[in-house]
């Protein structure tokens, strides 16, 4: 019989609630919590359950992943599962991280489940199978069943059908398929036209993603009186990276006070961005976050003043949804200081 391993957080792993969220990773033989229900539906034996606290995984992601990969080393398993994570954001992200890492390292299929509003969906749906799940543990049985049905197909190496049919979030890939009803394109196109001209609902076969365009702001009337802020997705942070911003697929950001400095010094600041060669930015962080040039402009009176913080995160692999969320978190700080304009630098 095929073998499976399941990942759970501290809560579903029956260690404890929020007060135990800092607990490190551990591996246990046999079935814990949801593993028992999953085991009933799976055409595989769940040999181990891996547990890690959500906060520990969130704050020490690399360490937690490496420890868990170490646990799995030498173990025989045909599939790896995680969750279901419902709408729990940290848990969903944890399931995504560990599934992706296990898939990359051991080349086994991985399956998890999340509610559509779980940020883990946006972050990991391109990399792994995430089943569309419920918003709370009340949907546990249902979500476990759907995870098991896809997992069983993967175990049997059956053809995985399109996302809508199997119930996983689209991974952003499109392939041709032969329709079961063999309905020729001529029938489809004429029927779609009749529906469209009559104002009836129809379903396009090629959905065009909504372009989330932001209109360009009107120019600043008098730059010499304007309060200008600097925001970068180039990953410039104080050398100790106090906000522990991730080097890729960032979900965290930081703001750093530049009062009393005219220049970001090498050794004080660096980039933690993993998407480009850091040498030039580490040698002079102003190359990505040009505090020096803006301070000079401030002195020359070209701009009114430079907002006292610069804001930083990492753009590589970061989803549009996460980037928008981080921006929304930055905005109140910028508004509080009546910032008139923002210079956004990338890499």
């Amino acid at each position: 019989m095929a073998k499976a391993i399941l990942y759970l957080n501290q809560f579903f792993g029956q260690i404890g609630g929020e007060d135990k969220a800092d607990v490190g990773s551990s591996i246990h033989e046999g079935l814990i919590g949801p593993a028992m229900e999953l085991d009933k539906h799976l055409d595989a034996e769940i040999t181990h359950t891996v547990i890690c606290g959500d906060n520990f995984m969130g704050s020490n992601t690399e360490e937690a992943i490496n420890t868990i990969l170490g646990f799995l080393e030498g173990k025989q398993f045909d599939i790896f599962l995680a969750g279901p994570a419902f709408q729990a954001g940290r848990y969903g992200i944890a399931c995504g991280h560990i599934c992706k890492a296990v898939k990359d390292k051991f080349n086994v299929p991985v399956v998890t489940s999340m509610h559509e509003e779980n940020p883990g969906v946006e972050m990991f749906k391109k990399d792994i199978y995430i089943m569309k799940g419920g918003n709370s543990a009340a949907k546990m049985r249902q979500d476990i069943k759907s995870m098991a049905s896809l997992a069983n197909k993967l175990i049997r190496k059956e053809t995985i059908l399109e996302a809508a049919q199997e119930g996983y979030y689209s991974r952003g890939v499109r392939h041709q398929v032969w329709r079961d009803d063999k309905k020729p394109a001529a029938d489809r196109v004429v029927e779609m036209l009749i529906k469209k001209v009559n104002g009836e609902p129809y379903e396009t076969e090629l959905p065009v993603p909504k372009m989330d365009r932001v209109s360009i702001a009107p120019p600043i009337a008098d730059l010499s009186k304007a309060n200008i802020a600097l925001v970068t997705s180039g990953g410039i942070v104080p050398v100790d990276n106090p906000d522990r911003i991730q080097s890729a697929s960032a979900t965290r950001w930081g703001r750093y006070n530049t009062e009393g400095t005219d220049d970001l010094q090498k050794g004080d600041y660096k980039t933690i961005h993993a998407g480009y060669d850091p040498a030039a930015a580490d040698d002079d962080p102003d190359r990505v976050a040009p505090v020096d040039a803006l301070k000079a402009y401030e002195k020359e009176g070209i701009i009114g003043r430079l907002h006292k913080y610069f804001y930083s995160t990492v753009g590589t692999g970061t989803t549009q949804a996460e980037a928008a969320r981080m921006a929304k978190e930055m905005i109140p700080h910028l508004k509080e200081d009546n910032v008139d304009g923002i210079i956004l630098t990338s890499t």
């Binding site: 499109r174 394109a185 090629l206």
Partner: peptide, 22 residues
């Protein structure tokens, strides 16, 4: 590649194929 299939995508209307998200 499918590219070399003779008139394979049958856009004139025969195509029993479509493209789906995976």
């Amino acid at each position: 590649e499918n590219n070399a299939m003779f008139c394979g995508d049958q856009v004139v209307g025969w195509s029993p194929k479509t493209v789906k998200e995976f």
